[in-house]
Design a protein around this nucleic acid. Structure first.
Length: 621
RNA sequence: GCCGUUGUAGCUCAGUGGUAGAGCACUUCCUUGGUAAGGAAGAGGUCAUGGGUUCAAUCCCCAUCAACGGCUCCA
């Protein structure tokens, strides 16, 4: 698997293009009434409002009000662009002095005045020369540049609200009052036209809702998202860390995080074994030459860690697993009878990511892919591809993900084989009736691909799984198999990682469950809490019994009162706390305190608790 | 990498141009308890790192590193 493109499109994508088209909602798996909700129903980004006007019209007008306020308070700032986004709006300004948080407060106050003033928004067409003259006179050089970029046959228009007039194609509410409640959120750098060779502008982000109540709801959503942030939960729950002495983007998996990872890996391994994948293991460091053959070096050298020289030979840390798997394929003569041949590996790869891009578990420099490469005949391609998509759906189901998106990424210059590959992908999508979005030109250098995206807590989209068809690498490595006709043929490869990277998958998983992993995934499934030390021995017996059944349990031996222990383990989001006092010790029972269940449950025997938990593990809930 | 913000105890954070504080966590003691924090004592910091200004720097200035919010890039 060599493709691992993350997508953070939410700011750059107009709201309309996001629609429901690419989002597949699967029916929720049947749920035991006692099973706690894994993703709170209340946790939804507010997308629908009471407004008569579309949200993006409100926000687009809000962006104009922001520009109005900026021009009022900081006339030296130059205008650029200010669109509505999925979650609000922004406006980019060119100004020497940085905007401070205090500036934002002042701007917000000014915007609220403008909203209250109920200023009408009016638009009018303007001729090209007139527009250029006007913005040149105002020294709005970016606007002039924009005009030059607009096709000749398009009519230019100006929109005026209050004393502020902007070049704009429209899509506004009728008056400032309709903007309702506004809030400025933060300032960030942004390159003019998104090109790092251009000047750095200052982007002010804000959001607007028709009513204060809806704005408050959104701000609550942001708070909830912060609570779910995998970086915060990772620390609080002791799952993983990133160590300054080791370097950014390199993950230390602590015992509890490792426990979850191993369960995920075990689940994936079982699936692979069922489908007759053959596990392989390949080296982390190999001759640089290997990546010259594969073409990765010429295409992606800037994203690879630099070469190491030993005994006058250059080595590279592996940035992908496919060349290694290819060498295994090539190590023997292959017959059509061997195909399809499926090699799988939890392969750890290292890629150089620029320091500013690193982000918790979701953007790292070293990660482990649930990688596999399928070698098959052209005739087998379709079936293999479909099977892979089916496996991907199974994985998403198992972890209770219901909102995900498929992206079909095509190659810019496509040849005959790309057509075949694309057809295979489209057929598979049709067969499973999977809606998808098209990403023209986003394919790998060796072929088109199908990506699976999931969102994190604040709605950022991350690419997890990807399935890619490849005619190029078999060619570059001269792969062949002997066909039934006695001739040599070129196999086709499918690259696939379904969880994508264990790190990123874990990050999204943490946020999806807000750290409250279902019992089958929880690093500690149950804690036994003796009420006094007189029950300590009984508690340890229970621990032994449950561990003997492969359950992950821990005895709380601390010298604390029960209330303290309960709170401690609740904060740690442990699914079960088993309270044992005098009565339980005498009866051979446990009093079960279950996460997500109000009130006490009647005591049950240790054996029946073991049964209950084992059942949940078996059913993966 | 670029723009901005931040960096003080394990964690969350106060604070001051005259060599530093709280809560939680930790250790010990008291307490032996019935479903979200019992009490007391103690230990713990080269105030990110390196320079500079100053009689004196955790505080002011510069640089570096890291984290955070974005941008860019992304096999």
């Amino acid at each position: 698997m060599t493709l691992w493109r993350s997508v953070v499109r939410y700011h750059s994508c107009p709201p309309t293009s996001k629609g429901g088209a690419g989002i597949r909602r699967l029916p929720s798996p049947s749920r035991n009434p006692r099973t706690p909700l894994t993703r709170g129903e209340a946790y939804r980004m507010p997308t629908e409002t009471t407004a008569h006007q579309p949200l993006n019209a409100i926000r687009h007008t809000a962006a104009h009000l922001l520009a109005h306020a900026v021009k009022d308070l900081y006339p030296d700032a130059k205008l650029t662009i200010g669109p509505a986004t999925e979650q609000g709006f922004y406006y980019d300004f060119d100004r020497k002095e940085p905007f401070t948080p205090e500036d934002l407060e002042r701007l917000e106050v000014r915007m609220k005045e403008l909203v209250a003033a109920d200023l009408p928004m009016t638009g009018r067409a303007i001729s090209r020369p007139e527009a250029i003259a006007r913005f040149t006179a105002e020294n709005e050089t970016y606007k002039v540049e924009l005009i030059h970029g607009i096709p000749e046959d398009e009519t230019l228009s100006l929109y005026t609200i209050g004393e502020f007039t902007d070049l704009c194609r429209g899509g506004h509410v009728h008056s400032s009052r309709e903007v309702g409640a506004v809030k400025l959120l933060n300032v960030a750098g942004a390159y003019w036209r998104g090109d790092e060779h251009n000047p750095m502008l200052q982007r002010i982000y804000g959001t607007a809702f028709p009513t204060q109540a809806e704005l408050d709801g959104y701000l609550q959503f942001l708070e909830e998202a912060q609570r779910r942030d995998h970086r915060k939960l990772g620390k609080e729950l002791g799952l993983f860390s990133i160590e300054e002495d080791a370097g950014g983007g390199l993950i230390f998996w602590h015992p509890k995080g490792t426990a979850v990872r191993q369960i995920v890996e075990q689940f994936i391994r079982e699936g692979l074994a069922e489908r007759n994948y053959l596990p392989v293991i390949t080296p982390h460091v190999v001759h640089e030459h290997l990546y010259e053959i594969s073409g990765h070096l010429e295409n992606f050298a800037p994203s690879m860690f630099g070469a190491m020289e030993v005994e006058e030979q250059r080595f590279r840390l592996k940035p992908m697993n496919c060349p290694g798997h290819i060498l295994i394929y090539r190590s023997e003569a292959r017959s059509y009878r061997d195909l399809p041949l499926r090699y799988s590996e939890f392969g750890t790869v290292y890629r150089f990511e620029r320091s500013g891009t690193l982000h918790g578990l979701t953007r790292v420099r070293g990660f482990t892919q649930d990688d596999a490469h399928l070698f098959c005949t052209a005739e087998q391609l379709q079936a293999e591809f479909e099977q892979t998509v089916e496996e991907a759906l199974r994985l998403l189901h198992a972890f209770n993900f219901t909102d995900f998106q498929f992206f079909l990424s095509t190659r810019e210059q496509r040849g005959h084989t790309d057509e075949i590959a694309e057809a295979a992908i489209r057929h598979a999508l049709e067969r499973f009736a999977m809606p998808y979005e098209l990403d023209e030109g986003g394919g790998a250098f060796y072929g088109p691909k199908l990506d699976i995206n999931l969102s994190d807590a604040i709605g950022r989209k991350w690419q997890l799984g990807t399935v890619q068809v490849d005619f190029v690498l078999p060619e570059r490595f001269g792969l062949k198999y002997r066909g039934a006709d006695g001739e040599d043929h070129r196999p086709v490869m499918i690259h696939r990682a379904l969880a994508g990277s264990m790190e990123r998958f874990f990050g999204v998983l943490i946020e999806h469950f807000a750290g409250a992993f279902p019992a089958w995934l929880a690093p500690i499934q149950a804690v036994i809490a003796p009420i006094s030390e007189h029950q300590l021995e009984y508690a340890q017996q229970i621990g032994k019994t449950l561990r003997a059944r492969n359950l992950r349990v821990q005895v709380d031996e601390s010298n604390e009162k029960l209330g303290y222990k309960i709170r401690h383990w609740k904060v740690q989001k442990v699914p079960y706390i088993l309270v044992v006092g005098k009565q339980e010790a005498a009866d051979g029972t446990v009093a079960v305190n279950e996460r997500g269940v109000d009130g006490k449950r009647p005591p049950i025997t240790v054996a029946s608790f073991a049964e209950e938990l084992a059942q949940r593990v078996a059913e993966r809930r």
